[in-house]
Amino acid sequence: MAFYLGNHGNIRLRRGNPIEIGTFKALISPDDINTALNRLGVENAVDNLVTGDRIVFSTTDNRRLDFIPDTNFGDPEFIQTQGADQLVTQSGDSFFSNGLTTDDFTAFVNVNAVGGLRLFPTFADAINNDRSNEITLDPFTNEPIEVHLDVRDTQYNVLGNVSGYEFNTSRDAIDVTALSDKYKQQYDAGLLSGSGRIECSFDYTTTDTKEAPIIMLQTIQRLDVGCGFDLALYLTDQEIIPDVANVFYLTTAVTTSTGISVDAGGVVSCTIDFVTTGEIRLIIGRPDAYILKEDADRIQIEQSLDFLLQEVTD
């Protein structure tokens, strides 16, 4: 029998919410665009967005997302040669190589203290505020543009400074006792639910691609888009112990409470309580962030999958 130490696991988070609740609206006016700092002012951004969030901007305005240069929607040279208006599908909608139209756009955001957004193509660029890779903004005129902002994510990131976690699952027992029965009977196909607690040392700095524990304290304060996230709780991680398989719980959850402990001469720590909101799966040996191929290579999440062969018949 093998025994495993608790420090052989970790926690990975993927930000985001169900589409029906993970959206809020904002009016973007010409005065909200600061081209010198490449900052976009968005109402209620402070209450809903966190640095590192992947946001999908969309609009039904005829002017489309006028503050985003067309070169950000596909191959700049191709668009410059053909013209953005010439790139159309059979349905008549504008189409670009990343699958988005000029009615919608996706980027990772860096949020300042007053809710100003700076847009970046990757998570690492956003959390490190790497201005060499920032997405430029264009000024526009006339009336404000109504924009929908959806919080979405594409990958799991390791939660840093975790000292321990607890996860419990329970199944409701349905009482099927009839009036004439002398013994209580239970039916075992009740609803399955989960809850847990994460304990970690407090840290508000984020480097590389790790999530800082402050993200859990910020998530519960999202007023309009909710506090949901996808959660992978690793018991064993192959990246830490190469000769064992990945064993982890995979579920969606919402933060229900957070606490901070500040002791004189001690490390500032925080606890996060959560409950699951969807399917709970215990997975053994299956990688969660890439697609398996016949060779040993991985397909990066942000990489185009157009080269994958598809079945042409059933």
Rank of each mutant, 00 (worst) to 15 (best):
S29H: 03
A212E: 03
I291D: 06
I260N: 09
N7W: 06
E146V: 07
S132E: 15
D295S: 05
F120N: 11
M216Q: 07
A45T: 12
C200I: 04
I240H: 02
A232K: 13
L49S: 10
K293Q: 14
L223D: 09
V225D: 08
I19H: 13
A113T: 14
P30Q: 00
Q238V: 05
P242M: 01
N44A: 13
V262L: 10
S97M: 10
T276E: 04
K25E: 15
V88S: 08
D125C: 02
A232W: 12
E199S: 11
F95G: 09
N129T: 15
G226D: 09
I19Q: 15
V244G: 00
E146G: 03
L5Y: 05
G92N: 13
N62Y: 08
P144Y: 02
D314Y: 05
S132C: 01
G259M: 07
T169V: 12
D188V: 05
E239M: 01
R64K: 15
I198L: 02
F202R: 11
R64W: 05
S304L: 08
T106Y: 07
N34D: 15
P69A: 08
A36H: 04
N17K: 03
L119D: 08
T71F: 01
F120R: 13
K182A: 07
N38M: 14
R63Y: 03
D93T: 11
D53N: 15
V254K: 10
L5C: 01
D70E: 11
L87I: 12
S163A: 02
F140R: 02
S195K: 11
F229V: 02
D181N: 07
L159F: 06
D295G: 05
L5D: 07
T219I: 09
A289V: 06
I28A: 02
S201T: 07
V42L: 05
F57I: 14
E302A: 07
T251I: 08
F57M: 15
E43G: 07
D263P: 03
L40Y: 10
T251E: 05
P213N: 10
D53G: 03
I135W: 00
I283G: 00
I135T: 14
V151T: 13
F96E: 01
Y187C: 04
I19N: 15
D125W: 00
F95A: 15
S269M: 09
A212L: 08
G22W: 13
V225Q: 05
T106R: 10
G41R: 12
A124T: 15
A26E: 10
T23I: 15
T258N: 09
A264E: 14
F307G: 11
A264K: 10
I214F: 06
T122W: 01
S94Q: 11
G278T: 04
V158A: 02
V147T: 09
Q80D: 13
L231R: 04
T252G: 03
L87R: 12
V244F: 05
S257K: 14
G278E: 07
L65N: 06
V114K: 06
A173Y: 02
D188L: 08
I79D: 02
L137R: 04
Y165E: 01
Q218R: 13
A107T: 13
D31S: 14
F3I: 15
M1Q: 09
T102V: 12
T60W: 00
L233W: 08
I127K: 09
L231S: 01
G99A: 06
